[in-house]
Nucleic acid binder design. Structure first.
Length: 428
RNA sequence: GGCGGGGUAGCUCAGCUAGGUAGAGCGCCCGGCUGUUAACCGGGCGGUCGUGGGUUCGAGUCCCACCCCCGCCGCCA
């Protein structure tokens, strides 16, 4: 029995024609001498009708055993019928069972935790299918933009010997008897690579050993990072905006069906994205009744208040120095703030990008490391980048799952990735 | 790390305030059904009530300790 078509190719135009399909049983309804099998493949779903008097005994027996998520091959004639979901179905002429599926664990009335325990099976669901296709499209859009705008992709190591940001929590591991860590950002490696390629990017996981139990946090998340020589803060925001816009547009153009399945009514935001200062953001938050003082880092509540003021992503730039990591370049005109910017997604989603201009002077960088109480010797190779041909540069990191969560309207970040890692989840 | 919620059948939950023979829906198993839409109809199986201790004639229910899970905040992408 040959597979002649993918399900998405079976439409009204094929009425009366015999097709061979292969896939998995999405729904199964046995009425005695007629069986309805809703078949799923990578491309879509379609109803198949098996009638006892229309198929040979072997096919009938196969259809009887085609439980939910069994793999099957079906041959049949395409028919239009208003009673079929989508209006098109196939009248089965032959059926064979490829792999049985006795008592598939995921049924109706399953809770969030149970489905996460069975995530290796739950990714077969329409909901996860749609979310993961949107994610893949978004990542392809990021890569497409970088590749066509002069960026070279550079991969950084996952095993590292020291922190990028002092204070942030690292996963420690034993590296042949030495302490090593899982990377929390590829930034320092990308900074090294700008001296080779000027504009570089990477899309790879970062790890944070923070017990953050929220809808915005994973312990392992995919991090799209870019670093650009000869760029200042404004140029960095230009890059980030163009990148996000491109990838978002691509998802919007190519993943309409998937957004529909998720019930997401999404319109790509208009450019330009507003750019406001930290000072203005604090004013907005305070005017909305948020308890926050100049000098505090933006709280989740403050970010939400600010992002809800705009119908598109908004950059917040020039935070107080004490709220940001040591490598951020101070504003020469106002040394108490640094040349950084975060991009807040709309609808209260919050931060999806963090970045800014880096300190490129050796002396300044050493002074800031000492000021933060960090050990200069931990940053020896990083300091070399300021010893040899240092240039002004800037970069940023984008949280892939956070951005996908916004685009697809996914309530919890764990559903923006196939196999999420959270403080309590290591399986599957 | 702080605050809040929760752990009872394979799954989703009720029962706890006022201690008295452990329940429902779904699933599963068996049977029926020629147009179902996570079908429907009939029957059946199924639980050391998170763990340990205490009070009591009697504890899922009250008390103590512990473990685990979920959400929010902090931290960040």
């Amino acid at each position: 029995m040959a597979r002649t078509h993918l399900i998405s190719q079976v439409g009204p135009d094929l009425e009366g024609q015999e097709v061979g399909l292969a896939g998995w049983v999405y729904r199964y309804r046995d009425l005695g001498s007629v069986i309805f099998i809703v078949l799923r493949d990578a491309t879509g779903i379609i109803q198949a009708v098996v009638r006892s008097e229309e198929v040979d005994p072997n096919s009938w027996e196969a259809a009887k055993k085609a439980d939910v998520e069994a793999s099957v091959k079906l041959a049949g004639v395409v028919r239009l019928d208003p009673r079929a979901p989508g209006g098109v179905e196939i009248r089965v002429t032959r059926a064979s069972l490829v792999g049985e599926s006795p008592d598939f664990p995921i049924k109706k009335d399953t809770g969030v935790e149970f489905r996460l325990d069975k995530r290796h099976l739950d990714i077969r669901s329409r909901r996860m299918w749609a979310a993961l296709k949107i994610r893949a499209e978004f990542i392809a859009g990021l890569r497409e933009w970088f590749d066509s705008n002069g960026f070279v992709s550079v991969e950084a190591p996952t095993f590292v010997s020291a922190a990028v940001e002092g204070g942030a929590t690292l996963f420690e591991l034993n590296y042949f008897g030495r302490k090593a860590y899982l990377t929390q950002s590829s930034q320092f490696y990308l900074e090294a690579a700008i001296f080779t390629f000027e504009k570089v990017y990477t899309i790879q996981p970062s790890f944070r050993a923070e017990k953050s139990r929220t809808r915005r946090h994973l312990t392992e998340f995919w991090h799209a990072e870019a670093e650009m020589a000869w760029h200042d803060l404004d140029a960095m925001m230009d890059v980030a905006e163009a990148l996000v816009d491109h990838a978002v547009q691509r998802v919007y153009e190519n993943r309409k069906e998937e957004l529909e399945i998720l019930g997401r009514k999404f319109e790509p935001p208009q450019r330009p994205y507003p750019r406001i200062s930290y000072d203005e953001a604090i004013d907005i938050a305070q005017s909305k009744g948020v308890q926050i003082e100049w000098g505090d880092d933006m709280s989740t509540e403050a970010e939400r208040a600010v992002s809800l003021e705009f119908d598109r992503p908004v950059f917040v730039y020039r935070y107080p120095k004490q709220a940001k990591a040591f490598y951020h370049a101070p504003d020469p005109a106002r040394p108490e703030v640094v040349l950084c910017a975060d991009l807040l997604a709309p609808e209260g989603i919050g931060e999806i990008i963090g970045g800014g201009q880096r300190i490129h002077s050796y002396d300044e960088l050493v002074a800031r490391i000492r000021e933060e109480g960090l050990r200069v010797e931990d940053y020896e190779w990083y300091l070399d980048l300021r010893r040899y041909g240092s240039v002004p540069h800037a970069g940023f990191g984008l949280g892939v799952e956070r951005t996908v969560r916004w685009i697809a309207g996914i309530p919890h970040i764990r559903d923006a990735v196939a196999f999420p890692r959270t403080p309590t989840r290591l399986t599957p």
